[in-house]
Each structure stands twice: as C-alpha cells, then as structure tokens.
C-alpha cells in the first residue's frame, strides 16, 4: 500500500488550537492512502460531517483503518486534497445566484487543473461528491473557459461528447442489445410501410 503524505504547510499556532492539529487518513478506491489536516477537511462539507460523526481521537486516527472513499481514485483524490490543503481556513463561498458567475481562478488552482480533460471531469465529479464548493466553482469555470469561442463541433471534441446521431445510434444499439426482437419488428414495420400498409393488423 502506498502512502502519499499531504504537502507540509506552516500552521499558525496562535490561530489554531493544539487539539485541532490532527491529520485524518483517507483511502481511495485504488487503495492509495492520504493524510489530510482537519482544517483542510473543513473545505469539504461531506468529509467534515463524516469525521465529526466518527468522533475520532488522535489515537483512533492512527490505530483504526483509513476512512475509505470508494468512488474516487487515488489520482483524483490527490488533487482534491492538495487543493484543500492549499485553501484550508478560507471562507466557503455562498451562491448569490448571479449569472454569469464571476469567478477568478487563482494561480495555484490553474496549475493544479493543468491536467487532461478526463481527469478534470473526474475532479469536478469528486468536488461535487465531496461538496467542496469553491473547488467545484473554479473547476467548472475552467471547463467553461474551454468553451469560449468554440463552435458546437469543436465543443464536442473538447468535451468528448457524442453528436446527436451518435447518441441516438448508441441508444438504439443499447436497446437492441436488451431486446433483439425490437430490430426485427422495426424492419418488418418498415417493410410493410413500403408496401403501402400502415398497420400490422
């Protein structure tokens, strides 16, 4: 089992009580382990509630198994925790309902998200799953920036989206795989239509 330590950060002793300096252990679905400070965890509403409910002491953290996050792989979780450590202690933004959203991507975040699109989408998924509001905001902004000035065809390439035709073909294929008789019925119907009849009956 590989262990990846969270980045070492300076902690303001005066601002943070001694008992808060606790590092929790988390494990991704591919068995990679991470240590994350309690303050960084506060950026994630989901994890924050989870550790509060568990009520672990420092001994529990070391002696009990790492908390498993089964839906997220190690590569993605590393990015998530790096982001949380960098932004720990920052206020969690509140949605003011404005459209379009005004979000600036900080330099650190821009570097962190300088990754392939597939991993970026996974990061967004993780930020949503772990309820990390600001990470979700900046990552969505990053994806939105990718759309600027693109045609629909270019957007499909950027977002790796199927076209309507491909989408329909995929759905049809899935339907046929589920019910092989469907195709036969459709062909029979088309044949009858060609012959002038509108109904099977």
């Amino acid at each position: 089992m590989s262990v990846e330590n969270a980045p070492v950060v300076d902690v303001d002793e005066a601002a943070i009580p001694v008992e808060k300096k606790m590092y929790y252990r988390f494990e991704s679905n591919d068995k990679k382990e991470f240590r994350v400070s309690e303050l960084a965890i506060q950026q994630s509403e989901t994890l924050n509630r989870l550790v509060e409910a568990m009520g672990y002491t420092s001994e529990d953290v070391e002696n009990k198994p790492a908390i498993a996050i089964e839906n997220i792989d190690g590569k993605t979780l590393k990015l998530v925790f790096q982001w949380c450590e960098h932004h720990k202690g920052e206020a969690i933004p509140v949605d003011d309902g404005s459209v379009p959203k005004i979000v600036e991507i900080p330099e650190f975040d821009a570097k962190l998200m300088d990754i392939d699109n597939g991993l970026l989408f996974k990061l967004i998924w993780a930020a949503d799953y772990l309820n990390i509001v600001q990470l979700l905001n900046v990552s969505c902004k990053k994806v939105a920036n990718m759309a600027q000035g693109k045609t629909p065809a270019q957007l499909r390439r950027v977002y790796l989206l199927p076209s309507d035709e491909e989408d329909e073909a995929a759905k049809r294929a899935a339907q046929e795989a589920q019910d092989p008789r469907a195709r036969e019925v459709e062909e029979e119907f088309e044949e009858r239509k060609r012959q002038g009849g509108n109904s099977f009956f």
């Binding site: 379009p100 989408f121 998924w125 949503d128 969505c140 939105a144 920036n145 600027q148 790796l160 989206l161």
Partner: peptide, 27 residues
C-alpha cells in the same frame, strides 16, 4: 475515456452558468 457526461446534471448547469451567452448558445 471520461467525458463531460459523467458529470451530474446539476454540475453541468453550474458550468453553463459560467458561460457567456454566445458560448451557452453554442453549447
């Protein structure tokens, strides 16, 4: 390959909210 469709619908809506109008119309 992971595509944008893995992202839940409500998150896609957040992405749309970040787009300017023309990009939204292209999207």
């Amino acid at each position: 390959m992971v595509d944008l469709s893995v992202v839940p619908a409500h998150v896609t809506e957040i992405i749309v909210e970040h787009l300017d109008v023309l990009s939204r119309l292209m999207f």
